[in-house]
């Protein structure tokens, strides 16, 4: 029994698995939008549920963070009242102004999140009107059914292998979301510059 206790205590202290996150203290984010003007703006779309007697309905709540660099935006998560939880991320919406350099920073930052899944989609927005798209339920199904979509895994892989990648640009029409074009990113060119 002593041996078991020793092994257990060692695991406790050495495996750094003591990551306590209470579910009620989490901000479950399904989409986020990153844009760039003079500063960077990060808009987190939190997904919550509201219980009214027997009905449970989904609700969305937006949190806006403005910072000088992408890194400080993500670092400012610490100042939020609850922990930002990106494990159930569906999409990342990017502003058209974001360059390859910004993407590299984003990849490096997101790579540090241990709970992150890599199957969420990355798309560019045609205009700055993120509000129409960020809560759009059909976006996820539309991207799933399309063959030429880019997930975070694809983006990371292309960066590591230094290959070309085409990230879709989407537009919201009256009824639906549509891919209108692709933005080419050549990592070799980026390395040369």
């Amino acid at each position: 029994m002593k041996k078991i206790m020793i092994i257990f205590m060692l695991c406790l202290m050495t495996t750094s698995c003591l990551g306590y996150n209470d579910l009620n203290n989490l901000m479950i984010i399904n989409n986020f939008y990153l844009s760039k003007n003079n500063n960077y703006t990060l808009i987190l779309n939190e997904i919550t549920e509201q219980k009214e007697q027997l009905d449970i309905s989904k609700k969305y709540k937006k949190t806006t963070i403005s910072c000088k660099t992408i890194k400080t935006c993500f670092n400012s998560f610490k100042n939020l009242p609850r922990k930002v939880y990106l494990s159930h991320l569906d999409n990342i919406l990017l502003d058209k102004n974001l360059t390859a350099d910004d993407l590299v920073k984003l990849i490096k930052i997101l790579n540090n999140y241990k709970e992150l899944r890599e199957d969420f989609y990355i798309v560019y927005l045609n205009n700055k009107n993120y509000k129409d798209i960020i809560n759009n339920k059909s976006l996820q199904t539309y991207l799933k059914n399309k063959s030429k979509t880019i997930t975070f895994y694809d983006l990371k892989k292309s960066y590591i292998t230094k290959s070309k990648i085409k990230i879709p640009i989407i537009k919201k029409t009256i009824n639906e979301v549509k891919i209108i074009d692709y933005k080419l990113i050549d990592w070799r060119e980026y390395e040369k510059n």
Binding site: L23, I28, T48, Q50, H88
Partner: peptide, 9 residues
């Protein structure tokens, strides 16, 4: 996520 939100509520 749906089950998680249900648990959360």
């Amino acid at each position: 996520v749906n089950l998680l939100l249900n648990l959360k509520v």
